[in-house]
Design a protein around this nucleic acid. Sequence first.
DNA 1: CTTGAACTATGACATATATCACTGTTTTAA
DNA 2: TTAAAACAGTGATATATGTCATAGTTCAAG
Lengths: 204, 204
Amino acid sequence: MIECLLAEDQTLVRLGLKNLLELDGELVVTHCAENGAACIELLEQYQFDIVLLDMRMPEKTGIDVLQAMKKYKNKTPVLIITTFEDCDVLVRAMNLGARGYILKNAELECLVEAIKKVHIGQQVLQPTLTQYLLSQNYDKAEQLTDKEYEVLKCLSLGLSNKAIAETLNNSEGTIRNHVSQIIAKLNVKDRTQAVIKAINEHLI
Amino acid sequence: MIECLLAEDQTLVRLGLKNLLELDGELVVTHCAENGAACIELLEQYQFDIVLLDMRMPEKTGIDVLQAMKKYKNKTPVLIITTFEDCDVLVRAMNLGARGYILKNAELECLVEAIKKVHIGQQVLQPTLTQYLLSQNYDKAEQLTDKEYEVLKCLSLGLSNKAIAETLNNSEGTIRNHVSQIIAKLNVKDRTQAVIKAINEHLI
DNA sequence: CTTGAACTATGACATATATCACTGTTTTAA
DNA sequence: TTAAAACAGTGATATATGTCATAGTTCAAG
């Protein structure tokens, strides 16, 4: 019996997935989380064989969950279940240790198969992402660091350098440098363009 | 027995919803459509007691389906099942004759209840939309002028004051003043926050 | 005909932003 | 154990941004 933690914010989708999965005799969804924060808590309290993780959630995102798992050295395998082939986010998720991802418009059999593969230690990648990685000459140097993502998140809240410095407990100069880096890496001209890009490309 | 047509593009969500609904003895999903075009075809071929319609679909959207139904005078009641409280689209849908809408993060009981209500001819509206309709003419005094909207649009493209000045054939100082006004009227602190607000509240 | 609103513009000013060069510390991977 | 990166910081500098006071033009409404 494979015990799953299902993190998905939309109630109807969450219930629907739980029911579908449990049609397969080997799978059981022992707990559900309706946001990232709840997911992190459940991971602290219980053991699971696998985490089925939606990316876009309120409170804490899937990325936040993966970061928390990394921090607390939680080795439970993670399968991303996502609506969008949102390449940047997926790349980040894979870099943060996710074992694979599957789209919500996949067939049920694929999902079940993916879960079982991840459970026995295999990776599950869809062709699109691999293509993206190959074609887009994916340059690791151009990837934002975790800290930079944190700063970008603050930027997208409309915070000034000073406010970000206070929020993240840094000097304003440090934040200035991070912002400068973000602007350079995103290949934009100023913070406003960075925020626009972040919103449009779902980087946050 | 209430015979339902379920139009929803994401396979896993579609299957999940079908299973959930059929847990209720009164409901049966006789057909599913994975996009708007398929939905329109099925409506031509079969009779249903109710249509459960996702808004964002490839091929044809939910709006397209409602327009087609209007055109062919198909009177099957429609319940919108949507992820986003995307007020403008929902208003359009209701004007096109949808009987109600429910969010994907509603409880299963609410969905079933909504379906039954719609089936017996009632309307199903969530509070948020009503609030939105009321708040439309809320801060008329703080409305942006046409010119200010133009400038805001430029801001949202990430243009600098100088670039906006060139685009709109004004001096940089004039644009600075407009930006200042926009910032004041939107009650934000700088251009970045103005852009964020513009995007979030669909001001552009 | 006058008033007010929108639009245009300038100059002055304070502050915020972005870049650069340089210096460390810590963490991670080879 | 090195070498790399990420991370934190300082100081200098140039430019962009936002605010204010002030003022002229146009145009529609009273």
